[in-house]
């Protein structure tokens, strides 16, 4: 890593004041330090935000929950309110990384994880995301782990987070504060597709800081399932993951939420599709139709066509599991 200056402000205003074009906020550091060691990230100043008062999980006026950006991933997954009311989120968090990393990683930082694309990580080779304009060797190279939806000519990387897939399904809101004040970003608008600017993972403006993640009032505490398929039993990034949440009305789907991980540059969701299946029978035949619709636009690369089949099967499985499940966490 390159040398950097270090400072540790004690309030948000102080942190924002220190922020500049070559600075980076650091909390858990699990991804940022990794990237710095690979010379992928090269901040000249690290602003340690672990001294900021962003560690609370509090109830919101609308019956939801506000999660401070510094709440640790492990702590969040084991929070009684999360376990009881948002089990999908708990499951997703616990499917990611290792116990050590979950202890270290912060909630806000989890949203800012960068892709595991091997070309992005290896600063000796071209990559449009790391070095815009240098090309995308993954398109013609190794792309087994890459995107099947929403990719561009410039980038076929996928977002690596598990937690974010659940947050997408739960329609969380990201609270940010920046030089221009604070604002809220709907989760669907937080991460972006690569398009012409693969170097941009999300819609944060310069020097904006995530302060909290807000969950709406719980609507999916029972019939949920987070399904993650990976190359080994634990401690591996997802090939495909599915966050499935159902509200059942008798034998019909009252409400459906579905988000996919491992398929695109962001957690993949299709609210229109979800709405379309409202009122349909909660059967595997319906789930198959949902899977087909969800993946109808898939454009696999040379080595990842299997992901279309896998995602299809995983959606059906996850919805079936969600339907059978009764609120349990694990």
């Amino acid at each position: 890593m390159i040398p950097f200056a270090y400072s540790k402000p004690t309030d948000v205003a102080g942190a924002l004041q220190l922020a500049g074009p070559d600075s980076h906020f650091i909390a858990g550091g699990t991804n940022l330090l990794d990237l710095m060691k690979e010379n992928v990230a090269q901040p000249q100043r690290l602003i340690d935000i672990t001294g900021l008062p962003l560690r609370e999980v509090t109830a919101t006026a609308s019956g939801g929950l506000s999660i401070g950006a510094l709440v640790g991933n492990a702590e969040l997954a084991r929070h009684p309110r999360i376990e009881a009311d948002y089990p999908l989120l708990a499951q997703a968090i616990l499917a990611g990384a290792s116990p050590q990393l979950r202890n270290m990683a912060s909630s806000g930082g989890n949203l800012l994880q960068r892709t595991r694309c091997a070309y992005f990580y290896d600063s000796a080779v071209p990559c449009n995301k790391r070095a815009p304009g240098t090309g995308c060797p993954a398109r013609s190279g190794l792309n087994r782990n890459h995107a099947i939806l929403g990719a561009s000519q410039h980038c076929v990387a996928v977002h690596p987070s598990d937690m974010c897939v659940a947050l997408a399904a739960l329609e969380a809101t990201v609270q940010v504060q920046g030089p221009a004040g604070s604002r809220q970003i709907a989760f669907a608008d937080f991460h972006r597709l690569p398009g012409e600017q693969p170097e941009r993972d999300n819609t944060l403006a310069d020097n904006e800081l995530i302060t909290a993640i807000e969950l709406p009032a719980p609507r999916f505490a029972e019939h949920v399932h987070y399904l993650k398929v990976r190359d080994r039993a634990s401690y591996a990034f997802a090939l495909i993951s599915v966050a499935a949440a159902l509200r059942l009305e008798g034998e019909r789907i009252g409400e459906l939420r579905l988000a996919l991980g491992g398929v695109a540059h962001k957690p993949w969701r299709d609210p229109a599709l979800e709405a379309r299946f409202q009122g349909q029978p909660a059967t595997s035949a319906t789930y198959t139709q949902i899977a087909q619709a969800m993946l109808s636009g898939a454009q696999p690369l040379a080595h990842n066509a299997f992901k279309v089949t896998l995602a299809h099967n995983a959606i059906i499985r996850a919805l079936g599991q969600a339907q059978r499940r009764q609120g349990a966490t694990a």
Binding site: A118, Y119, G141, R232, A233, S234, Y235, A236, F237
Partner: peptide, 20 residues
């Protein structure tokens, strides 16, 4: 194309973990 091993780390060069 690059003549290079790309999964040169223990996150993507998978060896079994305890749970396997």
């Amino acid at each position: 194309n690059l003549g290079r091993t790309m999964n040169h780390n223990l996150a993507e060069y998978h060896i079994p973990v305890n749970a396997d």
